[in-house]
Amino acid sequence: MYMKKEYEYSMNVLSFQIQTTDIIPAFPYVAPFSSTVPDCCRIVRSFIEDSVSFMSYGGQLEFYDVVKKYLDKLLSEVLDEALLKLINTSVSGVSQAMQMAANMAVMERACDFFFRHAAQLSGVPLRMVERSRRQFPLRKARDAAEETLSGLLKAKVDGFMTLIENVNWMTDDPPQDGNEYVNEVIMYLETVVSTTASQILPTQVLKRVLLDVISHISEMIVGTLVSDSVK
């Protein structure tokens, strides 16, 4: 997401506490998430504020548990399903899948903010929120985003791995530059990681995806070695 001015950063990042550092970046600034993240955050924040306003209007003094209950339902049943549908129907390329995976990583921080915000408006100490922290409510969408990215990378790798059929398994001297299919795979993954992935994906997300892809490559190589084509 492209932001020209500091007020845009304040409105789209600081107001939802999804920044990773307290240092204000130089502008123009390109955030690692798309506009989907602040758009979702505004909807959820509005729901929280309207819920607290409604509950306090009735004269109830302790209503945080009720607000938290319905906030959790909104996140885990409504928003999670909406994001899951978006991922399953609209993501068709590696760059889109990578962006959605990055968005979900940011939404984890946003969800922490939602429950803190609800507690503050309800007059509940934040330590109680920290003590009762739940699992990430958007798990299905997060897992789908990472699985989609991994699947698209595997499909791309499969195209390079067809070159394994050209390997001469009976050669006397191994090629000095390695096998062509391995070189192509390494170059592709290095390009993906160095250009976009390392800039927008958190390390733990990138590691999970790459481990899955590398395991897939390993299985393909082992499958070839035990096949009838290798004598």
Rank of each mutant, 00 (worst) to 15 (best):
Y57P: 11
A144S: 01
L14V: 07
F115T: 05
I48M: 04
L83Y: 02
P28E: 05
A197M: 15
V167M: 07
P38C: 10
R131F: 15
Y2P: 07
T171H: 09
A141D: 01
N88W: 09
V91N: 02
H117G: 01
E8H: 08
V52Q: 00
N166P: 02
Q99P: 14
V192E: 15
D39C: 09
S53W: 00
S215H: 07
T203R: 09
L189R: 06
Q135D: 13
C40Y: 14
T36M: 13
F27P: 08
L14K: 07
P125W: 10
P175S: 03
S122R: 09
V193K: 05
F114I: 00
V209H: 01
M187G: 08
D65A: 09
Y7F: 13
A97C: 05
Y57F: 14
F16C: 02
A119E: 01
R45N: 15
L75H: 10
D50R: 09
C41N: 15
M11R: 13
I214Q: 11
P125V: 10
P137V: 00
P38F: 13
I221R: 14
R134W: 15
G159I: 04
M170K: 10
T203F: 13
L14F: 05
S150R: 02
E49V: 03
M220W: 06
D172L: 09
L138C: 07
N88H: 12
V209G: 00
L153A: 00
L14T: 05
P28T: 02
S10K: 11
L225D: 04
D212E: 09
G159C: 08
R134E: 15
G178Q: 10
M220T: 11
S35V: 14
L211W: 01
T21G: 10
V52E: 00
Q99S: 14
F115L: 05
D177H: 06
Q96H: 13
S150T: 14
V44A: 01
T196G: 08
Q204H: 15
D50K: 05
P38L: 01
V67F: 01
S132G: 14
S76Q: 11
S56F: 02
R134N: 14
S51T: 05
I24L: 10
T171S: 08
C111G: 02
S53F: 10
D80M: 00
R208P: 06
T171M: 11
S56Q: 02
K154V: 07
N166I: 04
D173P: 13
V129L: 06
D80F: 00
S215D: 12
S229G: 04
I221L: 06
G59T: 03
T191N: 08
R142F: 15
R142M: 15
E81R: 14
D39L: 09
E219G: 06
M1V: 06
L210A: 05
K154I: 07
V213C: 03
G123E: 05
K156R: 12
V182G: 07
V67N: 00
W169K: 06
I48D: 00
A155H: 09
L75W: 10
V193Y: 12
W169Y: 15
F63W: 02
Y9K: 10
E130M: 12
F47C: 01
L79K: 12
